[in-house]
Design a protein around this nucleic acid. Structure first.
Lengths: 222, 222
DNA sequence: ACCATCCTGACTGTTGAACAATCCGGCTCA
DNA sequence: TGAGCCGGATTGTTCAACAGTCAGGATGGT
């Protein structure tokens, strides 16, 4: 119930990253961050290790850590892995599994959030939807891997402006996919999901491409 | 080319774990380990963070870290994920990809090692074979995840005595699978792999079961 | 002899301070 | 303008300290 300080610091920083309050490429000074989180430098370094290991921070020798700046290749990679995981899991999933309930709740939340109008809520619900899919497998390791990918993906969203129209189109598709899955057509749902992931990858790619072309030649992320 | 000290320490400890020189459940004192690796306690703590995050060490509050002791459920989980990853990757793999060469080299090494008689070499070659399969996907993230799973698996092997007969039967199957794949029958090879993983999971399970029954009631690993 | 209690020692979790090595930005000087 | 130099700031790493906590032995009563 009570994680140690380093882990809590890592959680706090991770939250800042995935919510976009820390922008990709931004450098994190040990001193200032440790002061603002009220932990010692040594403890903070342990937190940094975790996040570097998760790929949310990158370490530059003798220049500390900075928020990772996913390149196009990274986004492609993330989607490839997600597809590899989610599609077969959904195809083999059981509608009675608790994960299905997560999916349903997420769809409801997404629909409500669309009325509310805050695209962040929609994005969060969307993430939970996909976590629900992975949960169908009942594999702790798979859950961890997927949670990690989600975090990296949310970080990639930070490369776009607050462009929320992105998710709007997917809410209905999620709902349709879920209906199909709950009706017993897991294979059909999996096929939907496959198309869904391909489409959203393509969309995100072009968006990042454009945004990348905008702020031109700051290819620090290597 | 020159990782920092914490990472090198983590590498060193990881090596000790996967080669079985550190037994599951064994507790690692910060003081003694830091002395033997010649790093400070703080630096060693960063190394511990990495390994805990990888699941090779477990942290017990106020009692430091200990080598993880995978339960039966963990082995099942590892194999489930491996299957989920490796089978479709192999099915979609291209025999011209560099990963195929890794597979071939690994098979050759395994055949040679069988003559040599050291089962550790066979095990290592087997691991490389499967790494080669995953490499076919060309996904850095998938490679990382799989490397992690391999490490955990090797740790599980530590629960058995130096029982090397385990791998003997698989060498030929690897060779046959590879032949099939190189001949262009990726789907057939993937089906072989699926059976392979199911069999080896079953074998390993019973072995761990027996070994676990042997040293009876030391269920510290929880 | 048995049991609960207390105590002590060891270890972890966390911090602050220190210092060499390294890097970045600005300055000097040609 | 540009090459080279310098100083300040930051990282990488270590050490020493201390409170909190745990395990196990010593203690003492019954």
């Amino acid at each position: 119930m009570k994680p140690d300080r380093a882990e809590r610091s890592a959680d706090a920083i991770r939250e800042l990253i995935v919510t976009g309050r820390l922008t990709p490429g931004q450098r994190l000074s040990e001193q200032s961050v440790s002061e603002s989180l009220d932990v010692s430098r040594n403890t903070l370094r342990e937190a940094f290790r975790i996040l570097v290991h998760e790929g949310l921070l990158v370490r530059r020798p003798n220049a500390g850590v900075a928020v990772a700046k996913p390149a196009l290749a990274d986004i492609v990679d993330i989607y490839r892995v997600r597809r590899l995981i989610e599609v077969p899991v959904l195809a083999a999933g059981d509608p009675a599994h608790p994960g299905a309930r997560m999916m349903r709740d997420a769809v409801d939340a997404a629909l409500a959030a669309r009325l509310g109008g805050d695209w962040r809520d929609i994005a969060a619900a969307n993430m939970r939807f996909h976590s629900g899919i992975v949960a169908l497998a009942g594999s702790p390791r798979l859950d961890r891997v997927h949670a990690n990918l989600s975090a990296e993906l949310r970080l990639s969203f930070g490369l776009l402006g607050d462009n929320g129209a992105f998710f709007d189109g997917f809410v209905d598709r999620n709902a349709g996919l879920l209906r199909r899955f709950l009706a017993g057509d897991a294979d059909g749902a999996a096929a939907d999901l496959n198309r869904y992931l391909a489409d959203s990858e393509r969309t995100l790619q072009t968006m990042v491409d454009d945004a990348g072309a905008a702020d031109a030649a700051d290819t620090v992320g290597q």
